[in-house]
Nucleic acid binder design. Structure first.
Lengths: 125, 125
DNA sequence: ACCTCATATGAATAATTGTTCATATGTTTA
DNA sequence: TAAACATATGAACAATTATTCATATGAGGT
């Protein structure tokens, strides 16, 4: 007879569960990684990142390039800064942003490969 | 004299903007990639993915393992299915899920490396 | 000291997304 | 065919997040 765990359903493969249980990333690692992907999972921010992959740019440049308000770009740059994806330097009134991490290019690159290989994402829920 | 573009601010580096402009990914590529990261940018889904990295599992297994309701797991598996991150096979009443794509492991791996190297994410807005 | 310009930010609103609850579907077994 | 169980799903609600608008900050030039 199978025993119940904390969930509402009968455990089907307790051995598998036990084996996997010990190998799961820690909760706070999961948190951090999902926060990272959350930051990458936004069109505006991904456009900013794509731009910064090509060149260091100031807020105004990015705003012009993407045709989005300065305020929006500034807000999103803050999110990118908090996630340590971008760094900045100040030169007089102008603040220049650039990417902070080589991983980002690779991650975004893999993302592109994935979508190019696996075809359309099914948007119908 | 500098000319105005569609944005509200004076263009500071028109040359940079023009150079970058041609190299940006297409809008629909940006959309698809950000959709992918959006899917990865959720703790529950990332836990499911982490589990499936280790073994094929049925819905009930995952639900038990993560101590989350069957309904929640099922909903999130649908999101993962729509994004083609997981595949499934049915065996009687039981539906087994597994990862659909080798990229995912690499992307998640890079995510982990990023967060381990760049220290804490600043949560203070 | 004042004006201008680049950037940042708080607060309000709009939009999206995650979770729960109730229930439906589909398969197996009695 | 009825009961039992695994999974799926619609609708409501809760929570989070993106965007806008108004305004603040901070630096440079006059």
């Amino acid at each position: 007879m199978k025993e119940k765990l904390t969930c509402e359903c009968t455990v089907i493969h307790e051995d598998v569960i036990k084996a996997v249980q010990t190998k799961l990333p820690k909760n706070d690692e999961i948190s951090k990684v999902s926060d990272l992907f959350k930051v990458l999972g936004d069109k505006t921010r991904l456009k900013i990142i794509s731009a910064l992959l090509k060149a260091e740019m100031c807020v105004c440049d990015i705003s012009c390039l993407l045709n989005m308000s300065q305020s929006l770009i500034s807000h999103q740059l803050r999110v990118l800064r908090n996630a340590r994806l971008v760094k900045f330097r100040r030169d007089g009134k102008v603040v220049y942003y650039s990417l902070n991490d080589e991983h980002i290019e690779i991650i975004v690159q893999y993302g592109l490969e994935h979508i190019n290989e696996s075809g359309e994402v099914d948007e119908t829920n």
